[in-house]
Design a binder for these strands. Structure first.
Lengths: 136, 136
DNA sequence: TCATTCTGTAATTATTTTTATTACAGTACA
DNA sequence: TGTACTGTAATAAAAATAATTACAGAATGA
């Protein structure tokens, strides 16, 4: 991963888990994370798409977990926020006339994919519930 | 990892391995990678510090591997180029008044460190020689 | 019904990070 | 002593991230 989105997503989810079903507003969440509520709402879109949270509009609205914290692994969170590949951005345009340059992207991709699989497997060892339980 | 430096470093090292001891200039390396020679020279500084390459100044100068490609693991290359933590930048400044915010950085750091160890272990399974042998 | 308090979302701007460029001093060779 | 390199700094450009602002629309409840 290469963005603060994982941290933010995990922070949101941990707070929601701690809230035990009570709806938390994006402003409240933003207060704990110390970022802008609009950023929280943006990340909530993604968490909703991935089925982790549900939100209620309007007065007294807010968000809560949509499924049990036991069912949400850190690997799944990671996958929900990652967009570009793990070890480097793939905008390299090496020289196709060079035997190495011509093929390196293919080999780098293989390497990144293999490595990322291991990473996700490792993250999957821990659920949101496990992570959340570390907090008092 | 979250920068193109890994790709560049590995590309450089692969080219040097293929060159079989012959000195390659930063301009030649840059030509294969399709980046600026100054960028290559910058990355070479790091590779030198880490003992992977050696460079010779002056006319007919250039760089070559300083140790055998068998002794350079991809994990070691990864470690040489990484600067910030794996899963997210650590500039978060959560709200210390919140029980979750107060402690999340500590727990995130633990998680990142554990995960990164696994990642490096995985990358260490492959040496530069292994990687380089994939190219004709 | 209507003021209030939320979310949803788009548009814009600011900041930070990364990458690229330029330039030139110093070194080694022939 | 000219040429072809590296070393390195300074600067600029580009890209990625994050923050801000704004406002329409939804739900509540007085």
């Amino acid at each position: 991963m290469n963005n603060g989105r994982f941290s933010i997503a995990l922070h949101i989810l941990t707070l929601l888990d701690k809230a035990n079903g009570e709806l938390l507003s994006s402003e409240y969440l933003a207060g704990s994370i110390n970022i802008n509520p609009a950023m929280v709402r943006k990340e909530l879109i993604n968490l909703r798409i991935n089925g982790f949270v549900q939100s209620k509009e309007g007065k007294n609205g807010g968000s809560s977990l949509a499924i049990s914290a036991n069912e949400i692994t850190l690997g799944a969170i990671y996958q929900s926020v990652k967009q570009i590949s793990l070890l480097g951005s793939q905008k390299n345009t090496p020289n196709p006339k060079c035997p190495v340059g011509k093929n390196i992207n293919e080999h780098l991709n293989d390497l990144y994919n293999d490595t990322e699989l291991i990473l996700i497997k490792q993250l999957n060892k821990q659920s949101l519930a496990d992570f959340s339980s570390k907090f008092s």
